[in-house]
Amino acid sequence: MEQIYARTKTIQEDKVSGFCPGCMHGTVMKLIGEVLEEMDLVDKAVCTLGIGCCGLQMDYIAYDNITSPHGRACAVATGIKRSNPDSLVFTYQGDGDFASIGLAESVSAANRGENISVIFINNGIYGMTGGQMAPTTLVGMKASTAPNGRDPKEHGYPMHMCEVLNELTAPVYLERTSCNTPGNVVKTKKAIRKAFQNQLDGKGFSMVEVVTSCPTNWGMDALKALDYIEENMLPEFPLGVIRDR
């Protein structure tokens, strides 16, 4: 029988994912691996991981990776890419990492037009530390540090990183995708491929923001979380290409 699908070799065979049921880190990790294989880039890949659940994949992926100080992934990637331009360097960061503690590093790397690719996972909450409020937490959404829900008077509004970076001149590609439907998963994969291709072409800074779920800290099961993305997250974080130059 002809084999038409196999698990990506960039994830170790004997490893069992430690991600929670319904978490989409595993999905994106798989997509990245597939793109690397399809583009024949595994030998060149260097992933700079953020701190938080996104960092869990260090144990599963079979290509080079480095764990960055919390928020500094874009700075670490800058150092790697500038000193080794032949590598394919991408960051993999959550919303707390990319948009809160690492805001200066993220915006500055984008503003310099660093020739790197950013995979930014936005699930609106801090995962590993246990459901604290993120810069992307929706208004009214409960978090362990906003027990009555995000209140704009006190906490401001969710941060739209694609749109923030779209104010800069240097970035070449900004797209927001999701993994809540098979169709969106396919679009996410295409976006990752494009971000990597831009880097190979020496074009500069690309970012793919993936709107995902955190069923555990959202306090709902995996299927409900998919509905929550559709009904609540996507109206706040509309999908699509924000910039493509």
Binding site: V46, T48, I66, S68, P69, R72, A75, V76, A77, T78, G79, I80, R82, S83, N84, S87, A104, E105, S108
Partner: peptide, 23 residues
């Protein structure tokens, strides 16, 4: 390569990256 980092925090992280790449 010379990079003026956006902060000391970023600069040392850039060095961490570059040195991790063997430079």
């Amino acid at each position: 390569t010379f990079v003026q980092g956006e902060s000391e925090v970023a600069s040392i992280s850039m060095v961490y990256g570059a040195a991790s790449a063997g430079t």
